[in-house]
Amino acid sequence: MFNAFLQIVRKELLGAFRQQSDILNPIWFFVIVVTLFPLGIGTDPALLARIAPGIIWVAALLAALLSFERLFKDDFIDGSLEQMMLAPQPLTWLVSAKVFAHWLLTGLPILLVSPLLAVFLSLQESTFWALFLTLLIGTPILSLLGSIGVALTIGLRKGGVLLSLIMLPLSIPILIFSTMAIDAATFGQSYIGLLALLGAMLVGAITLAPFAIAASLRVSVS
């Protein structure tokens, strides 16, 4: 069973490296959106540092939305999604592998470019670490939540906008807790409690979301 998990992850990664633009474009988008804010608001470092958590998290949300399109689309079109449903391994497990691979390809790169953004928005080092940790815990939750939305809308012709309408309201708690944690770090307060809350949400999402994703895929494919 674990073998199947690894195989799916491996297949996803190989496929992504063959089509690198799929990974690079959302990251590129993320960086551009964050760059637009200083251009629109002004370059006062204090102001930028004040609004940086919100900017980065909203941009991460939007970038995540962009990347979801490819999550199940190809599998849906070429029929391998149906194969997954017929496979001896439980669908929830296979779906978890897909989401994990998706996070490796989209969440992780956001983490990797976050130091660059910290420099752009003149964040202090302590604030940056808070940002990094919230992204580390928060982006997997986004991937899981978004996968539910993708699974629900995949069979629809105009699923893209609908996906954002469904998913963005549900991701509000992550946005709130993450930016609160980063704010706390800016003021030199402890933010362990907020990280723990995010962690609890991640654990909840990991246990519950695969079932929702699997059920949604069964609806969309039938």
Partner: peptide, 27 residues
């Protein structure tokens, strides 16, 4: 299918709404 999809989304929402409410109050 629409009814089933809406039902799934409703259940996802019902887990999320208390968290949303709690987070908004705290925020």
């Amino acid at each position: 299918l629409a009814g089933r999809a809406a039902s799934i989304l409703t259940l996802v929402g019902v887990i999320n709404l208390p968290i949303i409410h709690f987070s908004v109050v705290w925020w």
